[in-house]
């Protein structure tokens, strides 16, 4: 894509700006901020990636992944503000997911140990884990509130906190994991996944693109279930006191 062609893509920004102005939707400022931010952020990442790919230094890869985990934690922690120590719980979850997935990919030599593979795959895994984490924390907070009577009943009968909160925990894990499983059922039928589309546009063999896309999909299944389960089991004890009482 030439620079001129890239400039011309700004037409797709002009269209919403004109429509927003005409219909007085008030979206102009946010659209402009989003446009400028995406240009700066993506170019910055592009240059950083170019530098890392060329240097092939493991330290830079490590720093890049650390940065991703930091950003994902910062984003997700707001949703879990009611959970004590949510920051380190998120960090631990993202680290475990990253080590687990990269451990399998690199250990079994499914992907080569180069920045070109590690960084984009880590980005997808941590990004999805972050979204899953937010979904889980939202659902868990509302489940705990709506099942409060039931939870207290089980405690009052001599149940442990884990027994008392089990239904809320399982319902939240299931609810946050289902969208990932459901979206995989229709993939390729409704829309082509972003990464696969990108590879095809860049001239890759469609079948090779499909194979990589499948790798990502399966990776995200593990990411989804491990994120929800880990966050769930790390979070539920914070809802109780040492005397096994529910915290208001």
């Amino acid at each position: 894509m030439s620079f001129l062609a890239l400039l011309l893509t700004l037409i797709f920004v002009l269209i919403p700006l004109i429509l927003s102005k005409t219909l007085r939707l008030g979206l102009e400022k946010d659209t402009l901020i989003a446009t400028v931010r995406s240009i700066i952020q993506l170019f910055a990442v592009g240059y950083v990636l170019q530098f890392i790919f060329e240097s092939e230094n493991m330290l830079y890869i490590f720093l890049m992944v650390t940065l991703m985990i930091g950003a994902a934690t910062q984003n997700a922690r707001k949703k879990g503000a009611s959970i004590k120590g949510i920051t380190w719980k998120l960090v631990l979850t993202f680290v475990v997911i990253e080590v687990l997935t990269q451990g399998i990919l690199l250990g079994l030599q499914i992907t080569p140990p180069t920045a070109q593979y590690i960084i984009p795959l880590s980005g997808m895994v941590i990004g999805n884990s972050m979204v899953l984490g937010i979904l889980f924390l939202n659902r868990f907070t509302s489940e705990v509130a709506s099942r409060r009577e039931e939870t207290e009943l089980i405690l009052s009968l001599g149940g442990t906190p884990k027994q008392a909160i089990q239904k809320s925990l399982l319902a939240s894990i299931k609810a946050s994991t289902i969208p990932t499983i459901e979206s995989q059922k229709t993939i390729g039928l409704v829309q082509l996944p972003g990464m696969m589309s990108g590879q095809i546009i860049a001239g890759a063999d469609p079948l090779k693109a499909v194979m990589f896309q499948l790798l990502i999909l399966f990776l995200l299944l593990t990411t989804a279930i491990v994120t929800s389960i880990m966050l769930g089991f790390l979070s539920y004890p914070t809802k109780f006191t040492e005397r096994m009482q529910m915290i208001e």
Partner: peptide
């Protein structure tokens, strides 16, 4: 121990919550 306490001192709550 909270668990043995709650078994020893049973409580029936007003709302009669059913699972």
């Amino acid at each position: 121990d909270p668990i043995s306490l709650r078994r020893q001192v049973g409580i029936v709550l007003q709302q009669a919550t059913m699972l």
